[in-house]
């Protein structure tokens, strides 16, 4: 379960204080599929990164499975991410000099998994996302859709209970975007919690719950996705 308790994130910009997130209170149950929508600069990505332990709040607490993740040090937070959270980025963020298989092996390597087991797991995951024949391809040798699927396989490597996706379909054509959302639905059906930032109304509509943000505040929380971003 993910929770935010009165979370505020503010920045100093040209002697002015700018609130990226303003007193957000939020509870996301295990197994939920939440889409975060709202205009640019509304605080969606800030909220997502805070849930992932990547950005500390100015005020308030963020809890993962009941544990306050910013009350521990950065290395303990890195371990929490490694064990519980999978990130998906709009620009995929694959390591450019590694092959598809090696990219999927990176989280396993960080988790201390043996080389043989890493290779087996990476092949299995790439086959699952339909890239069993692209194991040795580097990111530049793959289409954007294939790159995002490698990123999905990498995200699944350590079997995370929480998936945080920042505009996962933002760079994809409608057909590939549909494929990616279908994968998210599968992952959610497996019991994983998904929080997805999106500008795409069709993608948002596939979530079980939609949160709308505006000027750093959660302005609506609807169980069915009927909001146009």
């Amino acid at each position: 379960m993910l929770q935010m308790e009165k979370v505020t994130k503010s920045y100093r910009h040209r002697r002015r204080t700018v609130a990226a997130l303003d007193g957000a209170d939020l509870t996301i149950d295990a197994g939920d599929f939440v889409s975060l929508v709202g205009p640019s600069g509304s605080g969606k990505s800030t909220l997502l990164l805070m849930l992932g332990g990547m950005l500390s709040p100015t005020l308030g607490r963020v809890l993962l499975h009941g544990q306050s993740i910013y009350d521990v040090g950065p290395n303990a937070r890195a371990r929490l991410r490694k064990e519980n959270i999978g990130f998906v980025f709009q620009t995929f963020n694959l390591v450019p000099y590694l092959t598809a298989q090696e990219n999927v092996q990176v989280p396993l390597c960080l988790n201390g998994v043996a080389a043989d087991a890493q290779a087996r797991r990476a092949v299995e995951l790439l086959q699952r996302v339909g890239l069993g024949d692209r194991l040795d391809h580097k990111p530049t040798e793959l289409s954007v859709g294939q790159q995002q699927r490698v990123a999905l396989a990498r995200m699944l490597a350590n079997d995370p209970s929480v998936i945080l996706a920042d505009e996962p379909t933002g760079n994809l054509d409608p057909e590939t975007a549909e494929q990616v959302i279908s994968f998210f639905e599968q992952f959610n059906a497996e019991g994983r919690t998904i929080v997805m930032v999106t500008h795409d109304p069709r993608a948002a509509a596939r979530a079980k719950r939609t949160l709308r943000l505006a000027e750093g505040k959660v302005v609506s929380d609807q169980p069915q996705a009927r909001i146009v971003a």
């Binding site: 992932g52 290395n75 371990r79 991410r81 490694k82 963020n93 390591v95 990176v106 989280p107 350590n158």
Partner: peptide, 16 residues
């Protein structure tokens, strides 16, 4: 920088 950020997001500790 982006690669380092990605590794951190994947759980790399600062010592790594």
């Amino acid at each position: 920088r982006r690669e380092i950020g990605t590794l951190m997001a994947l759980g790399a500790e600062s010592s790594f």
